[in-house]
Structure formats: structure tokens, C-alpha cells
Computed example of a mutant assay.
Amino acid sequence: MTVRQTPLYETHVKYGGKIVEFGGWLLPVQYAGILEEHKAVREKAGLFDVSHMGEVLVKGPEALAFLQKLVTNDVSRIADTQVQYTPMCYPDGGTVDDLLIYKRSNEEYFLVINAANIEKDWNWMQENSAGFNVELTNLSDQTAELALQGPQAETIISKLTDAPLAKLGYYWFIPQTTVAGKSVMVSRTGYTGEDGFEIYCRPEDAAFLWEKLMEAGKPYGLMPTGLGCRDTLRFEATLPLYGHELSATITPIEAGIGKFVSLDKGEFNGRATLAAQKQNGPHRKIAGFVLTGRGIARADYPVVFEGRRIGTVTTGSYAPTLDKNIGLALVEAEYAKVGGKFDIEIRGKNVPAEVIAKPFYIRGK
């Protein structure tokens, strides 16, 4: 597999980023350190390169009808310049990906998909577009993306733009504006559990915008942030990660994101399975847990109850904001109740854990 670089690769090297391969891309896992960067995003601000994400433009008279079949959420409910989160499922209810839909008009939507799934998603969308009067364009290589996240994000970006960001609601966007003189699309979105903005720009403008944001953010404690803290931040906020809490064999209902499955909008891929799971309850569920013994749970570790394997850890980590070793696991549904107990097998030893409520972290609480 060819390993790719984002337009900000040289910038990451300049800032001392520790580069790793992630989903076919060379990206910084950390700069100063994961804990320090995590804290900066929770208390001040962090700047992420998310240019590896994929983007697809859906245009045409039947764009809405096509998307209604393709994804589980009800796309007809969003207004122009609003963003919607949604899973996208196979006919058997397994998850192809989870994505964001940016509505520009009834005939034009901008989709943001996960980096590791770009080719798979693109092929799936093309296959499903048969019979619909729509045109799909893969804009992934023509789009760079920066994520400015944290309580100081609005203050920082406002130094570089006249766009009315104070009035921009969460999960809304401005289709075209300028930041530091460059033409961009800006949304109030992110994957950290904090307030923040995602800036979509031309690849050739990405390094310039990065430097301008870092400069503007200096008085406010802005730090460059890597994949490591992106994962600990999203995990504390219990936001699913494709390949962990969602996959071709894990449905959105099992993952606990059934509120993004709209059964009353008509037919869509996976509807029959998801309707049955909503009605009867799934056999498996994603449970949140805290380790009450010593150790850190990691993805793929077995979950055991009285000597029998009842599930698998999907994500596990030390949670810096909570100062606890916590995790998410896909377990048999009866063991997912808050207060329940099971063991995590860590390197051959059973470590006790207790099921706790999700999300683990909510901003402002």
C-alpha cells in the first residue's frame, strides 16, 4: 500500500511532530506529548491536521432521495447550511462508515468520510447511485482540512476572519468565507467533545492557514495537536471510531447510536435489521466501563464473566480528564447494564471492571 502525506507533512516535521502511519497516511501522533495536548484542547485550544479525511460532493435533482436510501439518518430534516451526523449501512445493518453531511441546497450535499474508508465508501456510493439522477464527485484530493478545537477556538479564529462565527450554531456551517485572506468553508464541528471549528481549504493554502492560526492562537495557549490526543479526546466524549465501535459487523444500534437511525423516513439500506434491533433490543451492546483493578484495557482484549468470554474491548485508555482507566467494549446485552461487573483479560490476567454510564465526559459538566 502506498503511504500518503497530507499538504501539512513538512509543517508537522517543522513543529516536531512524531510521525506515524495511520490508515495509509503519514500523520503526527503527538508533538509535545499526548497528555499535554489533550489538556490544551480541554482547557484552551489545539490545532489538528485532518486533511486525510475524504470528501464527496453529491449533486443533482435526486440528491436527497439518493442520500435517504444511502444513510440511516433523515437527511430531509436538515436545513441549508446545517450539518448532520449519520451512519451509512450495508443491507444487513452492518456499518459501511459514519459521516457528516453538509447541506448546501436540496440538490447539493458535501459529505465528509473517514480516511481509511475513502475508496470503499466511494465505490459503495457509486454502486448505490444507480437509478438516481445524481452526480458524485470525489473531492478528497482537492480538499485540505484543519480542526481548531477547544474553549478558545472562537476567539482565535475570529482574529483572522470577519465571518459571524459567534452566531454560528453547533453543527452549522458557512459555505464560503475567508480566513486570513484565503477562501474556505468553515463549520462549527469537531471530534473532541469541545467547541471548535473545522476549516476546509485548498491543499495549497493549508500550510499558510496553519501558521496564521498558530500565530493568532499563541496568546491563548494554542498547541499543535496529533492523532494521539484526538483519540483520547473523542474517547472521553464517547464518540465512536470506525473500525472500533462501528464496523461492517457492528450496527449503529449495537454501537448505541440508534438516535441517528430514522425508521420513519421510508426504505434505506439496513432498515429491516435495524428496525428489528430497535424493537427487540440488540443481542450485543457497546458498554462503557472503568477498571477497578490495575491495568489499561486495549482494543481486542477479551471481556470475561465467570470464566466465559462475553465480548471484546473496542477502545481502552487512560482518560486524562477523568484520571481513570476506562474503556468501551462490545458485550452480550445483558452485561451492558450500568453497575454490572465483568473482567478484562489483560496479558493473561483477569482485571475487574464495572460498567459506567456513557458518555464519560460532557463539556461544561
Rank of each mutant, 00 (worst) to 15 (best):
I19G: 00
V186R: 00
I174C: 04
M125W: 02
K120E: 13
G339Q: 11
G23F: 04
L160G: 03
V20F: 03
T2K: 14
K120V: 13
L165W: 07
A130R: 15
L111R: 09
V179L: 05
V58M: 06
G217F: 04
I326F: 02
E135H: 05
R202K: 14
G16V: 13
V331L: 07
A207C: 07
D92C: 06
M88V: 14
L322R: 10
P320G: 03
N128F: 08
W210D: 00
G181D: 07
I34P: 00
S76F: 02
A115Q: 05
G46K: 00
G23A: 09
L100Q: 13
A287S: 06
H283Y: 10
R77F: 10
A116Y: 11
D141L: 15
D231Y: 10
T225S: 13
A45P: 01
F173R: 01
E154F: 00
N280M: 09
L99H: 01
N128C: 13
V75C: 05
K337R: 12
C89K: 10
E245T: 04
G131L: 06
G281R: 01
E267Q: 12
R294Y: 03
L330A: 08
K259Q: 13
Y9S: 05
D121L: 05
P28M: 02
L233I: 01
K265S: 03
D343G: 14
M53K: 05
G348S: 10
G181V: 06
A237W: 08
D343I: 11
T321Y: 15
Y170L: 06
E145A: 08
E108R: 12
V184P: 09
A116S: 15
A299R: 15
K349N: 15
A299I: 02
E127A: 12
A237D: 08
D49C: 05
G190F: 01
Y85K: 08
R363S: 14
I257A: 08
D98R: 10
V96M: 14
D343K: 15
A276R: 15
G54T: 08
P252C: 08
E10S: 12
R363A: 15
A333Q: 10
L222P: 00
G33A: 03
M223Q: 15
T178P: 02
T143W: 08
F173K: 02
I118F: 01
K167G: 09
E204Q: 14
K285G: 03
Q84R: 11
Q142P: 00
G281P: 04
K167Q: 14
P224W: 02
G364R: 10
G364Q: 09
P151N: 07
T11A: 11
L67W: 03
E10K: 12
E21Q: 10
G150S: 04
R363H: 13
K324Q: 15
Y9E: 04
K218W: 14
K218C: 09
T312A: 10
I78W: 04
P302F: 04
M185G: 12
V20D: 10
T314V: 09
N114Q: 12
K365G: 14
H38R: 02
F360M: 10
E135M: 07
K120S: 13
T192H: 05
M88E: 12
R308F: 10
T143F: 04
I344D: 07
L222K: 01
